[in-house]
Nucleic acid binder design. Structure first.
Length: 541
RNA sequence: GCGUCUGUAGCUCAGUUGGAUAGAGCGUUAGCUUCCGAAGCUAAAGGUCAGAAGUUCGAAUCUUCUCAGGCGCUCCA
């Protein structure tokens, strides 16, 4: 629709101002002002006013005079230079039919340039269960991957498992110390969650013996093959299993679980470090190997151990080689880490434009008015799984997706649980269920047999306008990866439906087929939107 | 101090890429069930869009500065 108007305007400008070349400045936008009875407008005359040094009113009127007569639109001027376009009711009503007859409402989101894309998200350390702090990234990342898939990209969803280095060491110590207290010596902060006891008590006698007999030598053998390594792998697998289960309960699945340890087994880390050294990007300082990024950053510590940065570079190096586009969903606390990754990848010869990092702001959690900082280490956290159980998948999805990722969100756990009954998601689902009830009650009638007439009372017009905007909004949400546009849209559509439902009889003594046809379209759009957001559409509630 | 995200109604958040009189939910107040599901509808009250300057015909939106808050500034991961 906007394109048609744009072409009309463009033609009119060529006629009224020959030789001008302003087509690229033409923008057609939706009318949001309530006192203007039109659907679209363009502000081109205001833009031209400056360039041509003519006042915008004159320009607008001249353009309007040159606009081709069209059956589908009415044009009119409003101050100081808007050209408004009102679409005829007949034209608008077509959307109802289009929606009802379409077998794919998202047709048109497909890209011309399908890429192989890796989306890495969550990637919480396997040292404890997922807590509510991880929920936002999990749900957001999953939807982003889904939207990219709908666009036609070949998407791999990946979880990077940090099963190497210090924190795994401490995890093992935490568990081992339950079996042999000597392990705890020298550590003042060990993992404390209930899962530590659980894992410790479920180890086999053989495993326990291994722990007790090895004492302090255990960690010297952990990376070479043998029973020590097997035990470590066993424990990591248990942890990953806990995480997988809670993601699965949220219907989030990954295509690939990439283990940090595999980078060392395949010498990927040493390879990239050698390359960086050969290309003179590194230098040695105080016995450590460093690279100059935003600041000098350590790759190999003076004790000879690799930093997290070293393996992460190796990891990204692989992703950059294997994919056309690499997307990371990170918590905002990692933003300071990005510059060094970029510098490292650039040094390795990669085009860093291929890397796209989405920083998701924190969801601050309060309980009884007090802020709770999630800390796995301190055993101070609220499991994502317990929140999910409490408020349900639909409410938790909607809650996270309705907010922009750049927005910090605060929520009080008590209020969240209490409010979950008031979650707007139920309002939308209720609209769906109400429509379903009507449609079921007239099952057996062939509604398609009836010729559709124009609907024209005010509430119907309002709904039809909203339905007309659905393609544009859904496409924008999917292409620009902004799920909250859909949540807002669905709410608005549901609101208009509920109001309509309360005021207008759809089934009276006889069936009003035009209205049935309308609500059927509404239901289809709601279903489409809820599906997109991984939210269910129950037929009754 | 530096980097980064944010500041919109009592609270939680939208605001269609610079447009016309800034919107919802919750909460508050007042109404609506002989009738398709009241998880609903109708209405009221509630705003210096943190503040200031600037750019523009036009700013919640862009620029600069100030103030306030979150997060990060480890040879942690």
């Amino acid at each position: 629709m906007k394109d048609i108007i744009k072409q009309l305007v463009s033609k009119a400008i060529r006629e009224s101002y020959p030789g001008s070349n302003f087509e690229e400045f033409i923008e057609v936008q939706n009318v949001t002002a309530k006192n203007i009875d039109a659907d679209y407008f363009t502000n081109i005359s205001m833009k031209l006013a400056k360039k041509l040094k003519i006042n915008p009113t004159t320009i607008a009127e001249k353009i309007i005079a040159s606009l081709d007569k069209q059956e589908d639109f009415i044009y009119f001027f409003s101050k100081p230079g808007y050209i408004n376009f009102k679409v005829t009711d007949i034209m608008k009503n077509n959307i109802i039919q289009k929606i009802n007859e379409s077998d794919n409402l998202l047709y048109g989101c497909k890209t011309d340039n399908p890429k192989k894309i890796n989306v890495e998200f969550v990637s919480a350390n396997p040292t404890g269960p997922l807590h509510v702090g991880h929920g936002r990234g999990a749900i957001y990342g999953n939807i982003i991957a889904k939207f990219l898939t709908i666009q036609g990209h070949n998407v791999t969803k990946e979880y990077y498992v940090n099963d190497f280095g210090n924190q795994i060491h401490i995890l093992l110590i935490s568990i081992f110390s339950k079996i042999d207290n000597e392990y705890a010596a020298g550590y003042n902060e060990l993992y404390q969650g209930e899962y530590i006891n659980h894992i410790a008590s479920n180890l086999t006698e053989e495993q326990k013996k291994l722990i007790i007999n090895n004492s302090k030598d255990f960690f010297k053998k952990i990376d070479s093959s043998g029973p020590e390594k097997n035990l470590k792998t066993h424990i990591v697998n248990l942890m990953v299993g806990i995480i997988q289960q809670s993601l699965m309960n949220l219907n989030i699945d990954f295509d690939n679980w990439f283990y940090e340890s595999s980078l060392f087994e395949n010498n990927n880390v040493s390879k990239i470090i050698n390359k960086l050294e050969q290309d003179n990007y590194t230098f040695t300082k105080d016995g450590a190997l460093m690279i100059q990024a935003d600041e000098p950053r350590v790759i190999i510590k003076s004790d000879g151990n690799y930093t997290y940065f070293a393996s992460d570079l190796a990891y990204h190096n692989i992703k950059m080689n294997d994919y056309d586009s690499v997307i990371n969903i990170w918590g905002a606390d990692h933003h300071g880490y990005l510059p060094r990754v970029k510098v490292g990848l650039k040094a390795l010869g990669h085009d860093i434009d291929k890397l796209d990092v989405h920083l998701v702001q924190f969801a601050n959690l309060f309980k009884n008015g007090e802020k709770i900082s999630m800390s796995t280490r301190k055993g101070q956290y609220i499991e994502l799984e317990s929140l999910r159980k409490e408020i349900g998948n639909d409410a938790i999805n909607f809650f996270y997706l309705t907010k922009n990722k750049d927005q910090h969100i605060d929520f009080d756990l008590n209020i969240a649980i209490q409010d979950s009954k008031n979650n707007p998601v139920y309002y939308i689902q209720y609209a769906f269920a109400r429509i379903e009830k009507i449609l079921i009650s007239i099952e057996g009638y062939d509604i398609n047999k009836h010729k559709f007439k124009t609907l024209d009372n005010d509430s119907e017009k309002e709904i039809i306008d909203t339905l007309n905007s659905f393609t544009e909004i859904f496409h924008k949400a999917i292409i620009q990866l902004e799920p909250h546009l859909i949540t807002n849209y669905l709410y608005k559509l549901s609101q208009e439906f509920h109001s309509y439902y309360a005021n207008v009889k759809i089934l009276d003594n006889k069936i009003n087929y035009d209205r049935v046809y309308l609500i059927k379209a509404i239901q289809k759009v709601i279903k489409c939107g809820l599906d997109l957001l991984n939210i269910s559409s129950p037929k009754e509630m």
